[in-house]
Design a protein around this nucleic acid. Structure first.
Length: 555
RNA sequence: GCGUCUGUAGCUCAACGGAUAGAGCACCUGACUUCGGAUCAGGCGGUUGGGGGUUCGAGUCCCUCCAGGCGCACCA
């Protein structure tokens, strides 16, 4: 029995109470929240529904609860229920009903945890969107891990997810980029406002190899050729490093190509038709102040050039026209000033900002070691590069360390902890549980135990011990955790859940012998516990998949 | 100045308005002749930055003060 199943059953009880005129008709509409109480004395599950309904029903919470308890106690699988405290309903489940879940999880396998919560929604998730003028650094890495996980979690909740990387390949910074590379090739000093990192020298070397005749060209052609070539090499490097980081995009979207396809002109027409364009001081403005922005924004400068903001508008409108019902932007803390204006863009385009656009802001990450900020690389000045970090720590540990915290808090990571391959590191703790189960199941197979389809049946009432029941209750919560993570865009909840689950498993393992001892025959208890192990393995595997972290069979 | 995020155990952090605020690390005790000890059990540790308010109930919501991060271009 999962909390969702219990919640649905209680909803039926509410309908019955409405029919019996104990509760007002609105009670049939309320969502029933079922939670695992912290203390086992408070039951296997509990609901606050009586306190929610008390006021509209004009009754005391305990009276509402008393009526519902009588109905809940009659549900299949429920052992008993009672009223507690201000009006909580505590519910005790028959251990066999709880244990039955193990078989269901094994049958559902990779689909256990998925839902149809977001069915029918096409959600565009845009993240990283770094300038193609340098390597990806730590800030990008946080979004690479978390953004990718958000995409996975949304998909698990039934959404059609489009992951997109917006390439800022247009504008003066590309010129500076090309100038910096060209200057390096020519052994001239890099311009004051150019790109200074050591990586420019590497790019220059590569560009030089692919452009042997570069120095025979005239100055303008040289710059063009270097820009095209340097851009290609740098973009490829970003793409490769993300691929190796297990982060995949459906669409790499070029700002330049968008301009050339006439989408900016089109967007301006759309905004014009919606009536939010002004011509002032020789420039074209979008009246974002109509929708809560603190000042209007220029789309076309008085010299006729489009602003970057014009691209933003066109990009948003294009995402919508390509079929996304919701556009999620994952931005760094230094972009939080963009939130209002992006929402205003959606409103100016005729959309509902609360419905069609969502901006998540990720705070800064720092890595500390012995009380000092770590700077792994000198190649890009003071920045830590994604590739260097992965090399030092490993993909799984980096991804997991970044995902296990909510993004709206500034993060201080401990370098030594991330690299330690011991129990101090949560990622290995979770992975170890998975590998440990794998070893156990392998041993069972070597012993010739056919636990799934053998002669001995699965007898759920044998799994009545506290460690077994706690573990099974944890397994039951997985679908709710995935759903909450999707709704709140918070994959860290899955990581925390997996850590608790791993603890639950290790506890179970410690107190419940799974395999028969050397001189013993296989018993129904062994079979039942093997089901618990396999079900746990399925959930850990599914959970780690959602985070893009490997579930190793051995470590 | 305006906006925004943050403030929870010695450290790093959890807790979608629920019951006695939880983990890991650190420190101290314990547990293997059999399934992976990368494990488990126990202990120590808190005025949730301060003060008001909202309600059956507040770390969580509102107001205010304090402290810190980030941002406030006809740049991209």
């Amino acid at each position: 029995m999962t909390p969702e199943q219990l919640s649905a059953e209680i909803a039926q009880c509410l309908k019955a109470a409405v029919a019996a005129q104990v509760l007002p008709s609105m009670a049939a509409e309320v969502e029933v929240v079922v939670e695992r109480p912290r203390s086992r004395e408070h039951g296997d599950w509990a609901t606050n529904i009586a306190m929610v309904l008390a006021k509209p029903a004009g009754l005391s919470p305990r009276d509402v609860a008393a009526d519902l308890v009588l109905r809940i106690e009659k549900l299949a699988g429920v052992k008993s229920a009672n009223v507690a405290g201000p009006g909580f309903i505590n519910i005790f489940i028959d251990p066999a009903a709880t244990a039955q879940l193990a078989v269901q999880i094994i049958a559902k396998n990779n689909t256990y945890g998925t839902s149809n919560l977001l069915n029918g929604q096409t959600i565009n998730v845009e993240f990283i969107s770094a300038n193609p003028t340098g390597p990806l650094h730590l800030g990008h890495t946080r979004w690479a891990a978390v953004g990718d996980a958000i995409g996975r979690v949304l998909a698990a909740a039934g959404a059609n997810v489009v992951r997109e990387f917006y390439i800022n390949d247009r504008g003066v910074q590309m010129q500076k980029f090309a100038q910096s590379i060209l200057a390096t090739i020519k052994n001239e000093p890099i311009p004051e406002d150019g790109y200074q990192g050591d990586y420019i020298a590497d790019l220059a070397a590569q560009v030089q190899i692919s452009l042997p005749n570069l120095l025979d060209m005239n100055d303008a052609d040289q710059l063009d050729a270097v820009l095209t070539q340097g851009y290609a090499v740098q973009l490829k490097q970003q793409q490769d490093s993300l691929l190796s980081f297990n982060t995949k995009f459906d669409i790499w979207y070029s700002e330049l190509a968008m301009h050339e396809a006439g989408k900016v002109v089109h967007a301006l027409k759309v905004l014009e038709q919606q009536g939010h364009i002004d011509n002032r001081d020789g420039a074209v403005w979008l009246r974002t102040t109509d929708f809560g922005d603190d000042k209007d924004r220029v789309l076309v400068k008085s010299d006729g050039e489009y602003t970057y903001f014009a691209s933003d508008c066109a990009y948003y409108i294009d995402k919508r026209e390509r079929g996304s019902s919701k556009c999620i932007y994952l931005l760094g803390a230094d972009h939080h000033g963009y939130v209002n204006r992006l929402r205003a863009v959606a409103a100016c385009a005729g959309d509902n900002p609360d419905e069609n656009i969502e901006v998540l802001i990720g705070q800064l990450v720092k890595i500390m070691r012995n009380g000092e900020e770590v700077k792994l690389s000198k190649r890009a000045g003071d920045l830590i590069l994604l590739t260097d970090l992965v090399e030092a720590v490993g993909v799984d540990a980096v991804r997991y360390s970044l995902i296990r915290y909510p993004v709206d808090t500034p993060l201080l990571l401990d370098f030594d902890l991330m690299t330690s391959r011991t129990n101090e590191n949560p990622v290995y703790y979770v992975q170890y549980a998975h590998a440990r189960i794998n070893a156990l199941l392998n041993t069972a197979a070597e012993l010739g135990i056919n636990w799934e389809h053998g002669e001995l049946a699965f007898v759920p009432q044998l799994l009545a011990g506290p460690a077994e029941q706690d573990l099974l209750a944890q397994l039951a919560q997985f679908p709710a955790v995935v759903a909450t993570s999707a709704e709140l865009r918070e994959p860290h909840r899955i990581a925390r859940y997996l850590e608790d689950l791993a603890t639950g498993y290790h506890r179970f393992y410690d107190s419940c012998r799974v395999l028969p001892a050397a001189d013993q025959a296989v018993s129904e208890l062994n079979i039942a516990r093997l089901h618990v192990c396999r079900a746990t393995q399925v959930v850990i595997y599914n959970g780690l998949q959602l985070l893009g972290v490997a579930a190793p069979e051995r470590m």
